[in-house]
Design a protein around this nucleic acid. Sequence first.
DNA 1: ATTCTTTATCGTAATATTGCAATATAATAA
DNA 2: TTATTATATTGCAATATTACGATAAAGAAT
Lengths: 110, 110
Amino acid sequence: MGVTKTDQFTKKQNAMALILKSLGHPARVSIVEYLTKVDSCICGDIVDELPLAQPTVSQHLKELKNAGVIKGSIEGNAICYCIDEQTIETLHAYLANILNQLKNKTTNCC
Amino acid sequence: MGVTKTDQFTKKQNAMALILKSLGHPARVSIVEYLTKVDSCICGDIVDELPLAQPTVSQHLKELKNAGVIKGSIEGNAICYCIDEQTIETLHAYLANILNQLKNKTTNCC
DNA sequence: ATTCTTTATCGTAATATTGCAATATAATAA
DNA sequence: TTATTATATTGCAATATTACGATAAAGAAT
């Protein structure tokens, strides 16, 4: 069908999947890396940096924003985007928890 | 188009995106959580656990395996799937690095 | 007021994803 | 050999994603 059975999974699972999915595209990985490195974060700079057309970049930014990975604030004429550290921390902690559980396991078949 | 401009980004960016994308679906998040908790990891158990048909689960497992998030080993008649800790560690370290860089930033506009 | 600059939205084409029934494959059991 | 069990693959319908040209919207500059 192409439609995800969202209701069959927990809110947390859907929330994590949303964040992970938003990061699951090289352009969006690239945007996050750029915003991590750079000090100013004007939207136009991101467009210039990426090998994609402006509407495409705008769409990717929207998706990252929707997942809470970035946030934007109006800066006069332009818009300033930057990473929402909290969301990255949430994801980081989630993975740390998984790694922790794995290390405490007695058996490991594979 | 619907086709990602993979060649326009670095290998690392594409590799990270592949891992993140494979985790970007609640069913696959659910599989990873299940494999983290459980001690044995027979494919059939995963199918029983998930609210999806066997072919659908098989497809999700294939995607996780392709991204290196899980690995499978033949266990007689059945197949034993479990998490590839290294891949999770790679992702974990990647995020740690981003968080580190963010914390060392002087300015933060948003 | 008009133009310029910056970003978002719309419309659309190409491709990818999700999900499942049907079927194939492969190993074990009878 | 013939079932049985466990998993993968195929084929297909429904929906989602990716990308971009055209255009809209909104503030800044002239």
